[in-house]
Nucleic acid binder design. Sequence first.
DNA 1: TATCCACACGCAAACGTTTTCGTAGCGAAT
DNA 2: ATTCGCTACGAAAACGTTTGCGTGTGGATA
Lengths: 340, 340
Amino acid sequence: MKQKVTLKQIAKELDVSISTVSKALKDSVEISLDTRQKVKAFAKLYNYKPNNIALSLKNRKTKTIGVIIPEIVHHFFTTVIGGVEKVANEKGYNVIICSSNNSFDKEVINMEMLASGSADGFILSVAKETQLKKDYHHIQETMNQGMPVVMFDRIIDEIVCDKVIIDDTKGAQMATNHLLSLGCRRIAILTTVDYISVGKLRTNGYLNALRSYDIVHDDSLILKIEDIDHCEEEIEEFLKDKDIDAVFAVNELFAVNAIKVLRNSGKNVPEEVRVVGFTDGILAKHFIPSLTVISQHGEEMGERAATILIDKLEGSDDLTEEYKTVIIDTSLVERQSTKK
Amino acid sequence: MKQKVTLKQIAKELDVSISTVSKALKDSVEISLDTRQKVKAFAKLYNYKPNNIALSLKNRKTKTIGVIIPEIVHHFFTTVIGGVEKVANEKGYNVIICSSNNSFDKEVINMEMLASGSADGFILSVAKETQLKKDYHHIQETMNQGMPVVMFDRIIDEIVCDKVIIDDTKGAQMATNHLLSLGCRRIAILTTVDYISVGKLRTNGYLNALRSYDIVHDDSLILKIEDIDHCEEEIEEFLKDKDIDAVFAVNELFAVNAIKVLRNSGKNVPEEVRVVGFTDGILAKHFIPSLTVISQHGEEMGERAATILIDKLEGSDDLTEEYKTVIIDTSLVERQSTKK
DNA sequence: TATCCACACGCAAACGTTTTCGTAGCGAAT
DNA sequence: ATTCGCTACGAAAACGTTTGCGTGTGGATA
């Protein structure tokens, strides 16, 4: 079990100095062709690879970007990560992924851990608890230390940094409009509690759409789900005997459960009740009926976020004080759940 | 935008030596109480955090474990990662996740990248291409450099290392037995091509189960799907006019598509055809009918893998030459797709 | 023969830590 | 007055790199 070979060892074997080895490997003209070849042959033989840690220390950068997300077992977030990985790898960056599990404390710990040398910058979607607590000191601090942060999806308005989001309001509006254009008039919405930023925005979009059709919204058609793990019960209770012709759900799971409940109560989707969801995930594609949804283009979000971050990391330090908010287009993916 | 504060800076400010600061922060008795307090106050004020990179370099370990998986947008793998993260964080380890995207080259690149200083050990599920190519030099090499590797799920028999797997054969057998015990006799299997290790094993399990019931298997009931992206077409073609009373699918997607195709051809699941899948993911839980599946207990796999790896990392270097293969129990989760 | 210039290479600092060992200063004991 | 022993601290090496600069060797030139 031979250990990793270092410059020092190569130098010793070949009876030259460390610097000579280093330069030879870089094909420096300072070193004679002869020596260069010898060193390179030796290095290849022993499978020399420069030690990243040492390089990081020397260069004061790690070529690593830290991604912190609320949940790892979550289709949307993993697609975003896919996008991040893609451009990161193209540009020679590593990606460290940590999940906060929606816990504020874990988010702080992860962030501080990565901030103290492991990553050059962050791509972040904040935990539910953080949004609730409104304590953002960890984010502020890492930014103060000069590390760029790009937030996506679950962002924080009060923090000034680069952001990549979708227009949740507009997306929800698009979804609701679609239902309205199909003739639906009694549209229920299954959404989250208000402190979830995206939930609130989507609710707003729903209300906007109704307003644009001069429909007065009916509070009894709005369900704000608290506990996603027991959403089915909540939805069942809510939908019972409700006179509706459509449902807009702010995520896949709500949509699927709505369909389930509706079907159990004898209502067919899409014939009697149309359903639109949010997030184009596995369920949306494979459920029967397949779901009409607003797609968030997660991979593109990841790509954009990574691009912005890397640009900032490699940019000329100075004019970095400009922050932009990129809004990714959403699109309506029509499937069976709203077909005539 | 103040930069991160280092020992050196604190030392300078307080007009003491670097070593004094370091010791003071560690509450060394060598340092007077007075100085200790002064240093600590200063450090807290400036939010001093030791630089991980420097520590890694000094200690020759990174306290980071590298996870390489074939796909990041994949429910099973993310649950495994969840498990890994859980125990890693408990034990003060960081987790770097890289996806190989089922590409051999990317697997090699990621592995070498992480091996050169970024991680102390690996948790690995190999890419499809790697299994096909049978080129394992990168894994061998990192092991030769003294870095422990734990493989899970998609493992390589030829490589001697710790492994965490399920008994795919047994799981498939359990699934098939379940169908047999319900009275099904013409059971089709939707599986993968043979070079996918888990696919082959599951196929074997299916055959074993049939054999134990003295049923001669019928090759025309076996479909080895090549291209997962177009599995629906393949399944449709395969299932057309086939006289069967059950389907065993080696993953969720195949199962769901089978149900879809069956339903389109007028056959009801579970009434006329029973279906069992593999992997207890989102689709299995929420599809209608919900899927009876073999659960692989991904989180537990991750936890076990991480535990083994960390034990090896912190173990007394010497007796590390023992490798174990942990077999995680599978379980049958009965749902609607096989209900009477 | 003395001077000069390439050439080819080595020295040393730096990145931020930790830790071993050395030592200045000082009060007390002989 | 000398030595001892303690307290409180500093110097330096080490981890593995990169790189600016210094330098010895040799041949060519004057």
